[in-house]
Nucleic acid binder design. Structure first.
Lengths: 184, 184
DNA sequence: GTGTTATACTCAACTTGTTGAATATGACAC
DNA sequence: GTGTCATATTCAACAAGTTGAGTATAACAC
């Protein structure tokens, strides 16, 4: 249900269109949650049916018409419940689901050279992601001025710190793994 | 498609029942891929339809009858293709999907005390997971003797190292995050 | 006037994953 | 003879996520 709650969280900052929500997801939440445009619109529909949102059609002359979504009291309540829900998805948070690691696990079926190649590619992706983090921090600064709340942006920074920590862990792991395979 | 490939990887070690596959998933792959029993049986069905597996019904006297699955040449080919498939899910591997981090991101809506509570719980789960890793290493030793291949178990260790690295990163992140919230 | 980009949204088919119950056998303990 | 555990599998309904194409408007540059 977390996509729904992510959307509620964003709409709690202010009313928005599906298009804007989609962009913010890509810009800033995509590090820890990804959603396709089509899924976002679908979820907005069902959330409106639940009564968590209302929507209003805005006629525009310079651009295509749009639909602006606004969170309702019932939506705010739902968001609050989700935020204070304990345990269950903290346990969930520990869960990794990685096709890549599954490949590492079974890489004994291929050659050492191929496995090293894979790990080196992973290492490079970590380096790229590491550079990309500055964009995330930029996005945080940008949206902080929009939302105008430093207390909230503190939590965004904490989430970004998670990104840094895990990218760094990925790098050092890759180095260690490469070393294990290279030793003879 | 990774559950299918995980099952192929295990069946490549030797023929097994759905029940055994389910247990091995829980024992050793669950760190990076989780699947429900019912899903495993469903996937085995569709994989047999693809011709990646054959199955044989074994009549037992002391226990309920069982169905033993065996990987076919076509299945081995599929496994090989998946293992040498580049890029695509290395990029995927970088992706985190965490409802917990989403909650951190929006935790500004709740009190600092509640947020700290959440982070402390996370920290504890990391500690638990850290202890649980030794069980994973035990499982590796146990299955190494079953599979009888040290070269392969090398990769299992590498996967386990990933677990260690990420649990450790989670711990230090949680400490940092708690420090950020506690500073006034 | 042509191509590109940004805006704005919709749809359908499909695969994957979750929930949770249901069924059945035989061993072993008390 | 009752209860529990380990073995072994099946089913159905539902929720979530993916793929990929399709539709449309208007600004801006060249």
């Amino acid at each position: 249900m977390s996509l729904k709650h992510g959307l509620l969280g964003l709409l709690n900052y202010g009313s928005m269109t599906g298009y804007e929500l989609d962009k913010i997801f890509r810009d800033s939440l995509s590090f820890f949650w990804q959603a396709k445009t089509s899924q976002i619109y679908r979820e907005l529909d069902t959330m409106e049916c639940h009564g968590w949102l209302t929507s209003e059609r805005i006629i525009q002359n310079d651009k295509p018409n749009k639909r602006v979504y606004t969170i309702t009291d019932s939506g705010k309540e739902e968001l609050g419940n989700w935020l204070s829900m304990p345990e269950s998805d903290i346990a969930n948070a520990m869960r990794v689901k990685s096709a890549f690691l599954m490949r590492v696990f079974f890489a004994g079926e291929t050659s050492t050279e191929q496995s090293l190649e894979m790990l080196r590619t992973y290492r490079e992706k970590c380096m790229e992601a590491s550079k990309g983090m500055s964009a995330a921090y930029d996005a945080i600064s940008k949206y902080r001025t929009v939302v105008g709340n430093d207390e909230k942006s503190k939590y965004w920074r904490i989430a970004a710190l998670y990104g840094d920590a895990f990218i760094h862990a990925g790098l050092t792991w890759a180095d260690k793994a490469i070393a294990v395979l290279e030793e003879k």
